[in-house]
Amino acid sequence: MKLILIFVSLITITSAAMTFTLGAHETACFGVFTEKPRTAISYYFAVQSGGSFDIDFSIKNPRGEIVDSDTKQRQGDFVFNADLPGEYMLCFNNGMSTYADKVIDFEIKAENEDETKEFRANMPAQPNAKPMAHVESMGKTVDRIDQQLDGLLRTIQYYKTRNNRNQATVKSTESRIYYFSIFEVLLMVGMAGLQITVVQLFFKGSRKQLV
Rank of each mutant, 00 (worst) to 15 (best):
A121D: 12
S97H: 07
Y88V: 06
G76Y: 12
F53M: 13
E107G: 02
A100K: 04
T71P: 01
E65M: 04
R154Q: 12
Y159V: 01
F45P: 07
S42M: 11
N164P: 09
K117T: 06
T161E: 14
E111C: 14
N164V: 07
D68S: 15
A110F: 01
E107L: 10
R74H: 08
E136G: 02
R154D: 12
Q148N: 09
F106A: 08
S137A: 15
K117M: 08
E107Y: 05
D146Y: 14
R63F: 01
Y43V: 00
D143Y: 03
M96H: 13
S97K: 03
D150G: 03
V103C: 06
F119H: 15
E113L: 14
N61V: 00
A125L: 06
G50K: 01
R144L: 11
M96G: 02
D83K: 10
Q48K: 08
T155M: 10
N81T: 11
A121V: 07
Y159P: 00
V103A: 07
S42Y: 13
Q148K: 10
V103R: 14
I59F: 03
G76P: 09
E136L: 11
R120S: 07
E136P: 00
N122I: 04
I145M: 05
D77K: 10
A110K: 03
Q126Y: 10
M89G: 01
S49R: 14
E87T: 13
Q157L: 14
N164E: 13
A133M: 09
Q148P: 00
G64F: 05
Y43S: 00
A46W: 03
D68A: 14
E115N: 07
L90H: 02
D54W: 01
D77Q: 15
N163I: 09
Y99M: 01
Q147H: 07
S69A: 15
T98C: 03
I55C: 02
F80G: 02
Y44M: 09
A46G: 13
P62Y: 04
T71W: 03
N112K: 04
A125E: 11
R144F: 10
L84C: 05
E113M: 12
